[in-house]
Nucleic acid binder design. Structure first.
Length: 982
RNA sequence: GCCCGGGUGGCGGAAUGGUAUACGCGCACGACUUAAAAUCGUGUGAGGCAACUCGUGUGGGUUCGAGUCCCACCCCGGGCACCA
């Protein structure tokens, strides 16, 4: 009688033995890799913002661990470190919530997190754990900050910054989600503060370009590309004139534009409220009071209670004119007004734009509201990009002057549409303009020829639209330059049209909404919008008009010529802003900087541009966070440390007079931007890490984490890696070769959150089913990169599965030699599980193991070797059970070299499959008739078409369908099917 | 609005253009049991007695053959959002 599997005893036992034997400790320092290649398998470390681990963390960690265990068994020296990122706002907020000092709370959380991380059964290298709040850790966080300052990558600037009124601190742009705080969802406001920044923008091009060489989840790369937001354009200067004096130039305003060729259409200049020119024209503008009020209001809009919604975004645009000053459009030389408006952002480009209402939606909206001129300078060009009629590559364009003719019914609100018979086209009446014809004449000719109507009356010529398309009936690429003309029929008088015309298309009367659906080419849709007068700004490329000598050129070719013409410069602009690093909170690494008033007065300092500022000398690091009873944020733009005299009073490192320490702390994301480096050398007191170890272990081989860090953590780690590379600290400039984002764990189709009350406590599940069952359940939910839907009852299936594995092996009832049929299935499973784990398809790997178990139970017994292989395949998912059974029944008996250490299954060799055993001799031939499956039967793998066909035709089920019919065609797919077409 | 993912049984989810729904959950029936639980076995897309027909968000298309490829649209999830 076999005992029932007791996971409680087993899991505890192996946890202790693994730890004691250190089986998951890599040969970190042994610089000669003893046959085992190093493999750095990293999972983003958790931030303890609660008592214990969330099941979402468990999910992510288990997924990473399965991969690590797999690699370890494949012979790699796997390093799977663990630590806690507990030095920041999230931990502090939690401490505030429960009313415990963060230093104390962190210790409580730490204990619980580590307990849970041990229970889940991951192969962590515990000896190298790090905590970001450990002074021995943040000494180096501060060291990095100091180095950044010394090397000109950290600077101070007064700026309107994102301020969270609830967290009472500033936030980096990346931490503001849709105008709300990333942590607490409070509406973020703008505040003018002096802050420390890291010059990440200096690395924008490299951060962008190097994405190409990374094997990272595509969605992460896309998110980073968008965040960095490279745009190519031009910087152009507009001269400013004081209207009263009329002559005197009062300066220039630089604008950035990606569409310099539209400059002839720039009808006003728009400045952000923070723009320098605004305040400098105080005494020149006649409506200063109004301007001042507007600026105040613009600020208050985001400064005031978070009650009224969305400070920006879709709100109606507002602005005020700077009356009395004008700008000169450098292309037209005409004077244009200057407006101040908050739809122009201060932080992007130059904080000023040239507004081209005809070709920019936002300018159009603003110009319409304030009755500013809209001046069309681009004729639209529509390039057909959907079938039918996609432009044929390589074929020259045939130019053609043409008309698009809109014809209105004599009594109804309907218009003529042509439905083409040989192509799926729906258009207005259209045709060429012959020599000497006006568009009006051409239109009338086309109406007569194509519809037979006799009495159209010309109403309007809306202008020109160009279209590039492949003319399917005529088999040529066309570049049509069409006047859109509008005519109304006076009556229904009509003559017959030729047979030829009738064969080409049908004439239909359509209402406006019907036309919307009916028309196919973009140019005809444009014509419709012209008719409906709903044409807004045309933002696409096109052909220039009203642009002096540039008329007739297309956007692409004229772009840089116009730039040159107006004396502008080509410029590349990034959306990325510098990383705001200061935080006005308590729980974090103090920024290791000192400000000396005296040195500042004498213009002395470590950096020329920043007199008075010194980095804390390396020997004085770490700057230890002082214990402060009242650690609550003050909300005055200052950290609680600003009221701790013994902390901020310090001697100037240069002149030794009384100076003041920086009292802000650094962003939590700085702690986590380099932790992977500390793991490899966590006890090093002399340096951040040893270069030699870095060469052995880095870059990271596999990094797994949540997609929510696409542009936060993952951009910062890349940034610092590049910085360290430039400093010669490391030899790589990307921290991780491979990154995979795991999916989101949800429950019963809904997000897991406290407010929804559907929190899953992993401890309960471990207690009731064991860690192995929980691990397997989590991994079985769906593809790891897609996430999964946690259903409580589902875990029973995995629990049953483990019990059955135990029964099968623990019965100790093995055959002497394995049954060949099972051996084949086993080898197929080895192949599948190996490939699935490599691709993070854990759910299908588990399913394959279930099938294997089903087969084993059905078979007449399996051999010891077969059982051992099975356990090995299971080991990454269920490390405890597989170890228990492996040790109980095989262990060193299988010839694994014995030593002081027990021969853990987790250090054993991953099974290999024999491709000969996977080959099939027969397969199930599917017989289809007209593509419908009618029969299937076993045949030899080598079967030829002729034989397959005759066999198939002899089948009764097939004959039912082929009886008396002629087989017109046979499709034979070797190893799969035969399809008889009748 | 823009950019990513997705839409397949009662549910989670499988399917190199080739037998749709593997595997698991749930459910039903049966065996064991005094009984229940556990366990084991059988069945389980819909309609139909059956032959068969219909079925992967909707509508079209390509193909001998489409969940898979193309076009248009609808819905859900996630990210970004006045970036000139």
């Amino acid at each position: 009688m076999v005992k029932k599997y007791n996971y409680k005893v087993t899991e505890k036992k192996w946890q202790e033995r693994w730890l004691k034997q250190g089986i998951y400790e890599p040969g970190l320092k042994s610089l000669s890799a003893k046959g085992r290649k190093p493999f750095y398998n990293l999972m983003m470390f958790p931030y303890p913002s609660a008592e214990g681990l969330h099941v979402g963390n468990m999910y992510a960690f288990t997924g990473s661990d399965v991969y690590g265990r797999f690699k370890r068994m494949q012979g790699y020296d796997v390093f799977e470190p663990i630590g806690l990122d507990g030095f920041g706002i999230h931990s502090e907020n939690y401490a505030l919530k429960v009313g415990t000092h963060p230093a104390k709370q962190t210790k409580i959380s730490e204990k619980n997190f580590y307990r849970q991380l041990k229970e889940i059964g991951n192969g962590f290298a515990w000896k190298e754990k790090v905590e970001t709040y450990d002074p021995e850790y943040y000494r180096w966080t501060q060291w990095i900050f100091a180095e950044m300052f010394k090397r000109g990558l950290a600077y101070r600037k007064k700026q309107a910054v994102n301020w969270c009124p609830s967290c009472k601190t500033v936030l980096a742009d990346e931490q503001v989600i849709s105008g709300k705080c990333e942590r607490c969802s409070t509406e973020v406001i703008k505040k003018d503060l002096e802050q420390w920044f890291f010059r990440i923008t200096k690395y924008a091009d490299r951060l962008l370009k190097d994405l190409e060489k990374l094997d990272w989840s595509e969605r992460i790369k896309i998110a980073q590309r968008n965040w960095i937001g490279k745009s190519e354009g031009a910087e152009v200067e507009f001269r400013i004139k004081n209207k009263e004096s009329g002559i005197k130039d009062t300066g220039v305003v630089k604008v950035f534009t990606t569409r310099p060729e539209t400059i002839f259409g720039a009808t006003y200049l728009a400045l952000s409220p923070e723009h320098d020119l605004v305040s400098s024209t105080k005494y020149q503008v006649s409506n200063w009071k109004e301007v001042e009020d507007y600026i105040k209001k613009a600020k208050a809009k985001s400064d005031d209670p978070p009650s009224h919604k969305a400070t920006e975004g879709q709100g109606e645009k507002t602005g005020v004119e700077l009356k009395g000053v004008r700008a000169i459009n450098p292309a037209t030389k005409k004077e244009i007004p200057i407006w101040v408006t908050d739809y122009v952002l201060a932080g992007y480009g130059t904080g000023a734009i040239m507004a081209v209402p005809a070709h920019d939606e936002r300018d159009f909206e603003f110009a319409t509201k304030y009755k500013l001129p809209i001046y069309d300078v681009i004729e639209p060009v529509y390039i057909q990009d959907t079938e039918p009629g996609i432009v044929k590559e390589g074929l020259p364009f045939e130019h053609r002057d043409a008309v698009i003719v809109i014809v209105k019914h004599w009594s109804e609100d309907k218009y003529i549409g042509l439905k083409w018979k040989k192509v799926a086209w729906g258009t207005f009446i259209t045709g060429g303009i012959e020599k000497g014809q006006t568009p009006e004449e051409a239109a009338k000719t086309e109406i007569r020829e194509e519809t037979g109507y006799l009495n159209p009356k010309f109403v309007d010529d809306f202008g020109i639209v160009h279209g590039k398309f492949y003319h399917v009936p005529k088999k040529v690429n066309r570049f049509a330059h069409s006047h859109v003309v509008y005519l109304e029929l006076q009556d229904g008088a009509r003559e017959d049209i030729s047979e030829k015309e009738r064969e080409i298309h049908d004439v239909l009367w359509l209402t406006l909404p019907e036309l919307e659906k009916f028309l196919t080419p973009g140019s005809h849709h444009h014509a419709l919008r012209m008719l409906k007068k709903t044409q807004r700004a045309y933002e696409e490329l096109g052909i220039l008009r009203n642009s002096g000598d540039f008329d007739g050129m297309d956007s692409e070719e004229s772009k840089w010529k116009v730039t040159e013409f107006v004396g502008g410069k080509r410029k590349i602009q990034y959306r990325l802003r510098d990383w705001l690093i200061s935080r006005q909170r308590y729980w974090g690494p103090p920024i290791p900087m000192i400000f000396c008033e005296k040195c500042a007065e004498n213009k002395k300092g470590e950096q020329k541009e920043m007199p008075g500022w010194y980095a804390v000398p390396e020997k004085d690091l770490p700057v230890v966070l002082p214990p402060v009873k009242d650690f609550r944020p003050r909300g005055k733009g200052q950290s609680p440390l600003a009221s701790v005299k013994f902390f901020y009073e310090v001697k100037c490192p240069a002149c030794k007079s009384l100076a003041r320490r920086e009292t802000d702390i650094s962003d939590n994301f700085l702690d986590s931007a380099w932790y992977y480096l500390r793991y490899i050398d966590s006890k090093n007191k002399k340096e951040l890490f040893s270069k030699k170890l870095a060469e052995k272990w880095l870059p990271i081989n596999m990094y797994i984490g949540g997609a929510e860090h696409s542009v936060l953590h993952l951009l910062y780690v890349r940034f610092l890696a590049k910085v360290f590379y430039d400093w010669g600290l490391v030899r790589f400039d990307e921290p991780a070769k491979k990154f995979r984002a795991h999916g989101l764990l949800i429950r019963d189709g809904k997000k897991i959150s406290k407010s929804k009350g559907n929190i899953i406590n992993p401890d309960d599940f471990i207690k009731e089913f064991g860690a192995d069952a929980l691990r397997m359940h989590l991994m079985f939910l769906g593809p790891f990169e897609d996430g999964g839907d946690f259903r409580d009852s589902g875990i029973l299936g995995l629990s049953r599965f483990l019990d059955r594995v135990f029964k099968l092996v623990a019965s100790d009832n093995f055959r002497k030699s394995g049954n060949l049929d099972f051996e084949r299935i086993l080898h197929k499973t080895i192949k599948k599980v190996t490939e699935d784990i490599e691709n993070l398809h854990y759910n299908t790997a588990i399913s394959a193991l279930m099938i294997l178990l089903n087969e084993a139970e059905k078979s007449d017994g399996i051999s010891k070797e077969q059982a051992a292989s099975f356990l090995k395949l299971l080991a990454p998912f269920a490390p405890y059970l597989s170890e228990e059974l492996y040790q109980q029944f095989f262990g060193s008996k299988l010839g694994v070299r014995s030593s002081k250490r027990f021969d853990s299954i987790h250090l054993s060799e991953w099974p290999k499959y024999d491709s000969n055993l996977i080959k099939e001799n027969t397969f199930n031939l599917v017989v289809q008739v007209n593509g419908k499956t009618r029969d299937a039967f076993e045949v030899s793998t080598n079967i030829k078409e002729a034989e397959a066909k005759s066999l198939a035709l002899n089948r009764e089920r097939v004959q039912k369908f082929t009886e008396g019919k002629e087989i017109k065609k046979t499709i034979f797919v070797a190893g799969r099917l035969i399809n008889l077409v009748i």
